[in-house]
Design a protein around this nucleic acid. Structure first.
Length: 292
DNA sequence: CTTTTCTCCTGTATGC
DNA sequence: TGCATACAGGAGAAAA
């Protein structure tokens, strides 16, 4: 569930509660949480211990703590990951996979992840502030280096569906299924329209809407981090009532009143308005079945 | 090379 | 009531 706004809420929480603190001990449980850390969980725990957290950064849905200014502890929340700040004597969560203790005897930092799609890894920090392990991810729409003209140009060259492009983290990062549907609803574009069949101004508008809807979600999720608790689910749940497309099948379109529909696309659910977002003409659909 | 499908995981909701 | 099945979905590996 966590997309860019929810991850940003967590980053801000880490900025408030973890940056500046000295890690004395890390406990990694199981093999899966550090599966992206090639050297293994023990190596990760050893190398994190004794460092000071100097920054909390993010690109798209990737989050990382900068350690001693030159290494990054990559945190990906996956589907259900949470970073929790909890007193050390608080009961251990059922799906707690990592815990960090600090020299100040303040609260612990815990990584809790029910479905274990998330994980932790260590990666060298490049001179541009991006860890090597995040280099394959494109800038998100809020970064100064995000080049919308360039992204639109690359989209225009694609024969794939526009929703697929929005979800492609190597093209533009941070957008997931929910905000893709919201951006497409706002732009009145069906997600299965082929990128190349849309004009550059329309493609650019879709990206503008994606940026805007994520900015709005962020303003509403900004309070979900209280003194001792990082609540990722709380952030997305709070924005729920502002959604116009996602999960709205069967209800009237907030713009025109037509009955919102639900379709399967990329093995995911897609929500759209049949009147505002007409399906592409069959002469030019994405994902034409490929014959053997 | 690009593009698409498959796979990882578990709590919750639904159907019989 | 109990059991089986569908669903949620980010992203990387594998396949086309």
């Amino acid at each position: 569930m966590p997309e860019l706004p929810e991850v940003e809420v967590v980053r801000r929480g880490l900025l408030d509660h973890v940056v500046g603190r000295h890690i004395t001990r890390a406990a990694i449980t199981g093999l899966r949480v550090a599966r992206r850390h090639v050297a293994g969980p023990e190596d990760l725990a050893d190398r994190v211990s004794g460092t000071t957290v100097t920054a909390a950064s993010r690109r798209g849905k990737y989050l990382w703590l900068v350690l001693d200014g030159d290494e990054a502890l990559i945190i990906h929340l996956g589907m259900s990951g949470q970073m929790l700040v909890k007193p050390g004597d608080a009961p251990r969560e059922k799906h707690c996979h990592a815990a960090f203790d600090f020299a100040d005897d303040g609260p612990q930092l815990r990584f809790v992840d029910q479905r274990t799609f998330g994980g932790l890894a260590l990666s060298p920090l490049g001179t541009d502030g991006i860890p090597d392990a995040v280099r394959h991810i494109a800038p998100d729409p809020f970064e100064p280096v995000f080049d919308q003209v360039s992204v639109v140009r690359r989209m225009k060259a694609r024969e794939s569906a526009v929703k697929r492009a929005l979800l492609d983290q190597s093209l533009v990062s941070g957008i997931g299924n929910i905000y893709a549907d919201e951006a497409l609803w706002r732009a009145r574009v069906h997600g299965e329209r082929v990128c190349a069949s849309l004009t550059k101004p329309v493609l650019s508008r879709v990206l503008d809407h994606a940026r805007e809807v994520m900015a709005e979600a962020l303003t509403q999720g900004g309070t979900s981090f209280d003194a001792l608790y990082v609540n990722v689910n709380g952030a997305s749940g709070y924005f729920d009532r502002s959604l116009h497309a996602y999960g709205r099948d069967g209800t009237p379109c907030d713009r025109c009143g037509a009955r919102m529909r639900r379709e399967q696309f990329m093995n995911r659910s897609s929500f759209s308005c049949p009147a505002c977002q007409p399906r592409p003409r069959t002469s030019r659909t994405a994902m034409a079945p490929r014959l053997p």
